[in-house]
């Protein structure tokens, strides 16, 4: 899908191996599974829970030139919506090409309406999105 995905937990690479081999749901997994037993990487992204020694459910999209563009963090008990992750990813790809535009909340895919901030748009966002 045009991005390198890396999953990260505070388990070691040995546990990743055991889990991936054991769990049938992970049979088709191709992405690298990162091991962060010290929590250093999770701390860098602000998702390390020191008391539990675990990483919160954080998703981060980083641009090709190394800038963090999206961050979503859920508590331990809530899963993430992959459709929303894909929406953000597609919007990033669009905005990287059209740097003067903005993707509104209902933007889903290429071809959907975007906004171009300008004096004319002030107070006219509703009309611009029709």
């Amino acid at each position: 899908m045009g991005a390198d995905v890396i999953t990260v937990s505070c388990d070691t690479q040995f546990v990743h191996l055991a889990w991936q081999k054991d769990e049938k749901m992970l049979k088709e997994v191709t992405y690298p599974m990162g091991a962060d037993p010290t929590g250093n990487l999770a701390s860098l992204f602000g998702v390390y829970d020191e008391e539990k020694g675990l990483a919160l459910r954080g998703t981060f999209i980083i641009s090709p030139d190394g800038v963090l563009l999206n961050s979503e963090v859920n508590f331990f008990n809530m899963g993430r919506n992959i459709d929303e992750l894909m929406r953000k990813f597609k919007a990033n790809i669009h905005l990287a090409k059209k740097t003067n535009e903005g993707c509104p909340s209902k933007w889903k895919e290429e071809g959907d309406k975007t906004l171009v901030p300008s004096p004319e748009l002030v107070g006219k966002v509703f009309e611009a999105l029709q």
């Binding site: 045009g2 991005a3 390198d4 995905v5 890396i6 999953t7 990260v8 937990s9 505070c10 388990d11 546990v15 990743h16 055991a18 889990w19 054991d22 769990e23 999770a42 992204f45 998702v47 539990k52 675990l54 990483a55 919160l56 459910r57 954080g58 998703t59 981060f60 999209i61 980083i62 641009s63 090709p64 331990f76 992750l85 990813f89 990033n92 790809i93």
Partner: peptide, 13 residues
């Protein structure tokens, strides 16, 4: 050229 998506989760299994 590559975008990166980091996906943290609490624990294996």
């Amino acid at each position: 050229k590559k975008w990166t998506i980091l996906f943290f989760y609490p624990a294996d299994f």
